[in-house]
Each structure stands twice: as structure tokens, then as C-alpha cells.
Amino acid sequence: MTVRRKAKIGFYALTSCYGCQLQFAMIDELVQALENIGIECWFMLDRNSDENAEVDIAFIEGSISTEEEVELVKKIREKAKIVVAVGSCAVHGGVQSWSNDKDLEELWKTVYGDGKVKFKPRMAEPVENYIKVDYKLYGCPPEKKDFLYALGTFLVGSWPEDIDYPVCVECRLKGNPCVLIEKGEPCLGPLTVAGCDARCPSYGIACIGCRGAVKEVAWFDSLAREFKKKGLKKEEILQRMRIFNAHNPKLEEMINKVFEEGE
């Protein structure tokens, strides 16, 4: 798909922390990019935002967490040529999906007690569950370079590549000591999409998987086997991998398999 020279863009928020938009707003090059893009809808920065405007590129941040948001994403899909799901909430349902093994009523009661509000809440879901998503920016939040790469590539009429290798690749290149093997901590680097330059392991901190599992080849099972050897229980492994992968259909099945293998 070729995008016109001055591309119309929209940045829309569902339920989230607004960190993806904040990251986008903090890109210094954004001011220069304005020569090539026109902002039709971006409530966080612009009072003259129109949710109904036709756009070339729609960036959507946040999970679908209310009935109203289901309608909103359908509308965005109709008005947009390219839909980009931005960040772990839009792509994977976000950390708010961490406990989607509990039911909504139970969560509601824990936080709001018997209080009632007039809007309709839902369990958090990724945008893709309701509309076709053309491209995804991973991360909580995505890196600035993720935005620039995708936007720049769209603007020249090309298509950005997906990232299909894990954080470990970048971590090894940086020459970091291995958090998993040398420090023995439950690092999720081996199954998490790269692109962050191994931010956390570079600080000696175990990856929590904020960019989500590498699709198609999510090695939940082989990493779980490694964690199991280190003495982690099934529930501990599952909960850690669920933080950013709660909607991954393979997760539970693969972990179960590892624990059915016996000692």
C-alpha cells in the first residue's frame, strides 16, 4: 500500500497507561516528521481531534476493556488504511490480562466492592480479537526506534519487517553476563521478542517479557524445563510467563506438557 506524501495519522487510546503515546510524543524527531504527516486524531495532544476522520495510519494503544472500546476499534478499522497495534496492551492484552484466569466479577468486587458505574467493563483483550491488525509494535512501552522504523517505512510506501528472534540475540551481542545461566534468575529473554537491545538484562535484571513471546516459535516449553531444573514450581513459571502472554494459546499447554514429562 502506498501512502500519500502528507500521511494522515491518528493515535487512539483504549485502556492503558498512555505510555505508548507518551513514548511517541517524546520522540524529538516528531517535530520534523510533521512535514510528512498530518495528525487527524490524537486526544492526548490535540483538542481538534476527530475520532471519525479517515486516516492512512491508525496507531492504537491499550487493551479492549469496555464495551465502548469494542465499538471504537471497529470504527477505527473502517476509517484507517493501516492499523498498527501499539504496545503490549494492544498487541497482547497487557498486564491487565495477568489474572484473566479469574472472572470479571471477582476482580470487580476486589477493587470496587459493591460500587456500580454506568459504563460496561470487560476482561481485557488484545485489539486483534476484534479487528484485523496490519502491524504490531511490541513492548511496554515500544522503543522510540520501533515507532520511527514503522512510521518511516510506511511513509516511503514500504512495509516494515516483523521481529522474529528473541532478546537473547541482542543480549549476547552486547556481551552481557547471562542472567539466566550465570545468575540463575528466571529471565524471559529466550522467548521474548527482541528489539529492546536487552535493556533489562544489561542492568543485570531478569527480563519480564514485556515485548511478548516470539510468535510461532514461542519456546515456553524449553524455557520452562530450564526453570523447572532451577526448582521453580509449575504455577510460578506459568504466572511469570503470563504477565505479558496471558492470551497466548500455546502457553498453558506447553507448560503442562513439561510437567507431565515427570522428573
Partner: peptide
């Protein structure tokens, strides 16, 4: 009208270090 995310509820029963990594996701600013 921002949807609810139930932070207090979703972190219940979770390991302390993991919960601590999740709380800041309440707000990016």
C-alpha cells in the same frame, strides 16, 4: 471512562518482585 485494570486484584497472590514490576504500569506519566 477509561476502562478498569484491577491492579490490586491482579497482583493478589503474585510474587512480590513480579507485582512490583507491574504496579508502575498503572501510569506512564
Amino acid at each position: 471512562i477509561e476502562g478498569p485494570r484491577f491492579f490490586e486484584a491482579i497482583t493478589l497472590g503474585k510474587k512480590l518482585d513480579e507485582a512490583l514490576a507491574i504496579y508502575p504500569r498503572i501510569c506512564s506519566f
